[in-house]
């Protein structure tokens, strides 16, 4: 008879798996190596297979110092950055208030839920032509697009967060005779925070997309417009620097969020770490 024990043995990871694990654990070095490999492949690919105007790493590095000190580029970067921050702030405040109200007050939820969900799933680019007419071909159309892009994911998450406040917290608040105001600001808001953060992360990405698309459409002096005009004039290396700047926004946002959470909400995401 065969030993039944043999079947229950844990399968040993193969050597390839172990190599992978080892490589993944040395994170910084691994990231740099991977990045260099991608750049080399890109460089070689363009050299052998692509037309001359296609951007390649060596050329991008060559133009990089000039581009990031160029007043036009700095202006474009600041313009996009401020519009995104402004739009996110508006969406964050209004989305949180409306979302939490929907989560805690049934009437609001009944009235608004269908529309909030509908607009959330609708591609924002569909309303952009309308927004440009309503707000004119200027900054406010871009801001409206950003707010529109960011608002719904914030509101939906805030609503879910407010609905999932553990009843124990509300019970304790009641037992200690908390006023309605204390329940809203302390209990509901704080216990929704993980949801709000998730919604805000999602919103930031969508806001950036909204800003770039609006700039394409409205021809505002932002990074989107910078990328578009340099692409059309075959200054592709410069355009890629613009794209990289947008990617840097994303990284910067993540780093800022992580720093803020660690500093001000040290308990966040620690609850499930307990054994």
């Amino acid at each position: 008879m065969t030993q039944p024990v043999a079947n229950t043995a844990v399968p040993q990871p193969g050597p390839l798996y172990r190599l992978q694990q080892k490589f993944a654990s040395t994170s910084v070095a691994a990231k740099i190596v991977a990045g260099l490999l991608i750049l080399v492949a890109w460089e070689l690919g363009v050299t052998f297979f692509a037309p001359k105007f296609v951007a390649r790493p060596t050329n991008i590095i060559a133009v990089f110092p000039d581009v990031i000190t160029e007043p036009e580029f700095i202006e474009a970067t600041l313009s996009t950055l401020f519009a995104v921050l402004q739009g996110l702030l508006i969406a964050l405040v209004s989305g949180t208030i409306i979302g939490i109200a929907m989560g805690r007050v049934k009437v609001f939820d009944r009235l608004l839920n269908v529309y909030i969900n509908g607009f959330y799933t609708m591609p924002m680019i569909a309303v952009l032509p309308l927004l440009t007419i309503w707000f004119g071909y200027e900054d406010s159309a871009r801001l409206a697009t950003i707010v529109f892009a960011a608002f719904f994911s914030i509101a939906i998450n805030a609503r879910d967060g407010a609905r999932s406040v553990p009843p124990e917290y509300l019970e304790v608040a009641r037992a200690y005779r908390a006023r309605q105001r204390d329940v809203w600001f302390d209990i509901t808001f704080m216990s929704s925070l993980p949801y709000l953060v998730a919604g805000f992360r999602l919103a930031a990405g969508r806001a950036l997309v909204g800003a770039v698309i609006a700039e394409f459409f409205v021809s505002l002096p932002g990074l989107g417009m910078y990328i578009l005009s340099h692409t059309r004039s075959f200054a592709h290396n410069e355009a890629v620097v613009g794209v990289l700047m947008l990617a840097a926004f994303g990284l910067l946002f993540e780093a800022t969020m992580n720093g803020v959470m660690r500093r001000f909400f040290p308990w966040y995401r620690r609850e499930d770490r307990k054994d």
Binding site: Y169, V172, A175, M190, R270
Partner: peptide, 13 residues
């Protein structure tokens, strides 16, 4: 009158 809960009811924040 004060109450102590089975679920502790501490606020994680």
């Amino acid at each position: 009158v004060a109450m102590v809960f089975q679920h502790f009811g501490l606020f994680p924040w």
